[in-house]
Amino acid sequence: MATEEHADGTEISAHLDYWVYQFDADNAFMQIHLDTMLVTLVVAGLMLGFSLWLRGRIVAGAPTGAQNAVEGLVGFVNDTVHDNFPVHNPIIAPLALTIFTFILLCNTIDLLPAYLLGHTAHLFGIEHFRPVPTNDLNLPVAMALTVFAMVLYYEFKLKPVHFMKELLLQPFASLLLDSKNPMVKLLGVALIPLNFTLKIIEEIAKPLSLSFRLFGNMFAGEVIFLLIAMLLLASSMEQLTTVGGIFAQLIGIAVGVGWSLFHMFIGLLQAFIFMILSVVYLSIAHQPVEH
């Protein structure tokens, strides 16, 4: 239990372990985080149930309640996509909607008390349980790489020649290759590997920053929750019954509430940023070639 680990200072790291099932103990890749998968599937199931529930009661006239809220969200996503996209692609708006709502819901789980789900899981004999799936690097990376794969797909589908040229000739070679001087031209050709490397780094940076931004924010938020809980909240009845214990408890609750509000805002902001950056990256891939 948490209180027993308090003394040796391993509490926070103990709370940062996943509920893991290992298929192959020697291969670090061959394991699965059951907590992340479980929470994700629950969130997905809730969204699916909500969609089915709402679909049966969509009215043509003035919307109310849940339909009104979802219409506001869909309108907002449509506006965002419409502002960024030069052409119409029917998959982009649902993609953006899914990214936004999915990440927002996952982030919102962080508002549950830090130990609640973990301790509930302990009752079922599960040693470690991380409730917030966006804290798990796997989820942001999975989403970012899916978006990145879509970007590459559209780049190759919509403007293959232009994309290959950009990959090999930017930023150095294109001007050099236009030169009349054969030596300069040769230099341009020699610079192609450098261009390629730079361009690859540039492209890889997109999903990398996309995923680590979300992961870092949510992970830090979780750690701060755990710090507040560990440093300020009483871990035993003896602590709670002293004057300093009560005082620390009150401060801890106040700080926890404050951080919860701020973290709720961060969760919303990160969901929005992830969505808007995905839309922007995809819109860049859709930009028509300029000559």
Binding site: F23, Q31, V141, A142
Partner: peptide, 9 residues
Amino acid sequence: SIDLTFVGQ
């Protein structure tokens, strides 16, 4: 770490 969770996600 990146593992099978990634594929699942």
